[in-house]
């Protein structure tokens, strides 16, 4: 399952959409739920999970990524956060070569879980794509030890 929820806020400007790409469907779904949960009642930005392969296995699916990006695209841009390996390369290849992803789609260089939380919070606050990407990327500089 990789449907979007949220959407445009009532009457307001479109918010940046967030796509979470993981090798695992459950990981992508859970991180989406975590990010929305931690953003609290203000989590209004559209978030979609694109995890695993269409048959439920581990891997990366260009098809699910494109579906998710289109589902959350409200015209304000789409931030794609990825886990590793083929998830990174698939999004990069789609951005470099194809026309499948919506205009304004961008790969965000950020840690997956922490970046997702930051992205959902800032996008829900109405930040633009550059600010959402910057907030997600800032999670790299928060040291845990």
């Amino acid at each position: 399952m990789s449907g979007a929820d949220g959407g445009m806020t009532g009457g307001g400007a479109a918010q940046v959409g967030i796509v979470l790409v993981s090798h695992s469907g459950p990981v992508a779904e859970s991180v989406a739920a975590l990010a929305k949960g931690l953003a609290g009642g203000g989590a209004t930005a559209p978030v979609a999970a694109a995890g695993g392969t269409p048959d439920g296995g581990l891997g990366t699916s260009a098809e699910l990524i494109v579906q998710a990006a289109r589902a959350v695209d409200g015209g304000a841009g789409v931030a794609l956060l990825v886990d590793l390996g083929s998830a990174v390369l698939t999004v990069k290849a789609l951005l470099a070569e194809g026309d499948e992803l919506p205009d304004g789609a961008r790969l965000v260089d950020a840690p997956f879980v922490e970046g997702a939380v930051a992205a959902v919070v800032t996008a829900s606050a109405g930040a633009d794509l550059t600010a959402v990407a910057a907030a997600a990327g800032e999670a790299y500089v928060y040291r845990k030890e």
Partner: peptide
């Protein structure tokens, strides 16, 4: 052919050979 590989492989070889 490259487009098919990016779409269907499901691992890193898809985007790499696709590209």
């Amino acid at each position: 052919a490259g487009r098919q590989l990016v779409s269907t492989v499901g691992g890193a070889s898809g985007p790499l050979y696709g590209t």
